Amino acid sequence: MMEENGGTRFVLYRKDRSEITRGKDLLRGYRLSSTAPTRRVVAACCNSPLFLEFKGGHWLSLYSSLWPEGQAPKPEIRTVTGDRGADVVLDNAIPSGTWQTMGFYGKLLTAWIAMGFKVPNIEIKEEAVI
């Protein structure tokens, strides 16, 4: 899941355009604390990570490794790059930085407006704090 530069590649989808069609009962959520705003969701049958979800977020961050080799959508932006270690040097193949991040948040807001400011809930039967 983690790439050579220490990052994890995600593909973001609006929740209202995402659907779990099979195996919903096999999903398990994990939080780093009881108050953590994020949960990681895995398929319990094979322990495969599926997505990361932010509490109150209208999108899902799907792990790009779910797609067969070469079929995941191409990355458009890097975010949260300020958290990387000083020894991690990013190439210029994918844009990152303040203006790109502002544009990204603008796209998120535009999508949320298009959704009528709704935040669809993804019901997960089992959740644990790790």
Rank of each mutant, 00 (worst) to 15 (best):
S34M: 04
S34L: 02
S34V: 10
P37W: 03
T38I: 12
T38E: 12
T38K: 03
R39Y: 11
V41R: 01
V41D: 02
V41H: 08
V42E: 06
A43G: 11
A44Q: 09
C45G: 06
N47V: 01
P49W: 02
F51N: 02
L52K: 09
L52Y: 12
K55D: 15
K55G: 08
H58N: 08
W59Q: 12
W59T: 10
S61K: 03
S61L: 11
L62S: 00
Y63A: 03
S64E: 13
S64I: 08
S64K: 06
S65G: 12
S65I: 12
S65W: 09
L66F: 11
L66N: 09
W67C: 08
W67H: 01
W67T: 10
P68T: 02
P68V: 00
P68W: 03
A72N: 00
P73Q: 01
K74I: 02
K74M: 09
K74E: 15
P75D: 08
T79A: 11
T81K: 05
G82A: 07
D83W: 09
D83P: 00
R84N: 05
G85A: 11
G85D: 03
D87F: 01
D87V: 00
D87L: 01
V88N: 00
V88P: 12
V88S: 03
V89L: 01
N92F: 02
N92K: 09
A93M: 14
I94N: 08
P95G: 09
P95L: 10
S96V: 02
S96A: 13
G97C: 13
G97F: 01
G97S: 10
T101R: 13
G103C: 06
F104W: 14
G106F: 07
G106L: 02
G106M: 01
K107P: 01
L108R: 04
L108C: 13
L108I: 13
L109V: 10
L109P: 05
L109M: 14
T110M: 10
T110C: 07
A111Y: 05
W112Y: 13
W112A: 01
I113M: 08
I113F: 08
I113C: 02
I113E: 07
I113T: 02
A114E: 14
A114F: 09
M115I: 07
G116V: 14
F117W: 15
F117H: 04
K118I: 06
K118V: 11
K118D: 15
V119I: 12
P120D: 14
I122M: 04
E123S: 12
I124E: 00
I124P: 04
